Amino acid sequence: MTNSMNKPPIWFWILSVLALIWNALGVQKYLQQAYNTEGFRASYTTEQLALMDSTPAWATAAFAVAVFGSVLACILLLLRKKLAKTVFLIALIAIIVQMGYGLLIAKNYEVLSSFEVTMSIFVPIIGLLLYLFAKRSAEKGWIN
C-alpha cells in the first residue's frame, strides 16, 4: 500500500459514476416504497404489496442503510476518500440483511417475478464487487 495519491485510470471514474447511478436508482426505489407512491403500487400485484406492507421496520431500515450508504460510498469514491471502503462494507452488510430477510424469512420468491428474484441475488453481488473495487482502489493509492 502506498501513502501517496496515485492518479486513477479513466475506467475508475467511469465505474464510479456508473456505480453512483446504479445506487441512486436504489434510493429512488426506496423512496417510492417508503412514500408508497401510486406508481409504486401500480407496478405490483396485491400479493406483492401485502408482502411489502408486512416487512418489519428493521428490514426496511436495512434497505435504507443499503441504498443511502451505497450512494454515500460512491460519492466518497468520486472524492477519492478511503472512507468509501468502510461505507461500502456497511452498505453490503445492510444489503445482505435486507435480501436475506426477503429470500429466507419472507420467502418473497413465492410472489415476486423472476426478474425481481434475480435482482435479489444480483444486488448483493454488485455490493460485494463495489466493496472490493473500493478496497483495491485504496491498495492502489487511488483513494486515500
Results as ranks from 00 to 15, higher is better:
A34T: 09
L72P: 08
V117H: 01
I90C: 00
G39Q: 00
I93N: 12
P56E: 12
A91T: 02
I10G: 06
E38C: 12
K29D: 14
V67T: 11
E47G: 02
E116H: 05
I21C: 10
L31R: 01
I143W: 09
K135E: 11
Y30L: 12
L51D: 13
L129W: 05
A106Y: 07
A62D: 08
P8M: 02
K135H: 12
I10Q: 06
A73K: 01
I126W: 14
L83R: 04
P56W: 01
Y44I: 05
T2V: 03
L78R: 03
S70V: 03
A106K: 11
E47M: 05
G100R: 12
K29W: 08
C74R: 00
I21Y: 06
F68N: 12
N6Y: 03
M52C: 00
Q32P: 01
F12L: 09
V65H: 08
Y101Q: 13
M119P: 05
G69Y: 03
L83V: 12
E116F: 13
I125Y: 06
N3L: 13
L132R: 13
E47Q: 07
N108K: 15
E38Q: 07
G102R: 12
F12P: 02
G26N: 05
W22M: 05
I96R: 09
V111A: 09
R80N: 10
F88K: 11
K7E: 08
Y109D: 15
P9L: 11
I90K: 08
K85Q: 14
I121L: 15
R80G: 01
L130D: 15
Y30D: 03
L49R: 02
S54Q: 09
A94M: 09
R41M: 06
M5Y: 13
P124T: 11
A59L: 08
K81W: 01
Y35A: 14
F63T: 00
T2A: 13
L51A: 15
L20K: 04
A19S: 15
L130F: 09
Q28E: 11
V71T: 06
A73F: 07
M119S: 12
R80M: 05
A66G: 06
I10E: 07
S4F: 05
S70E: 06
K81N: 05
V71R: 10
V87T: 05
A138I: 00
A42G: 11
T2W: 09
L83N: 11
I105R: 01
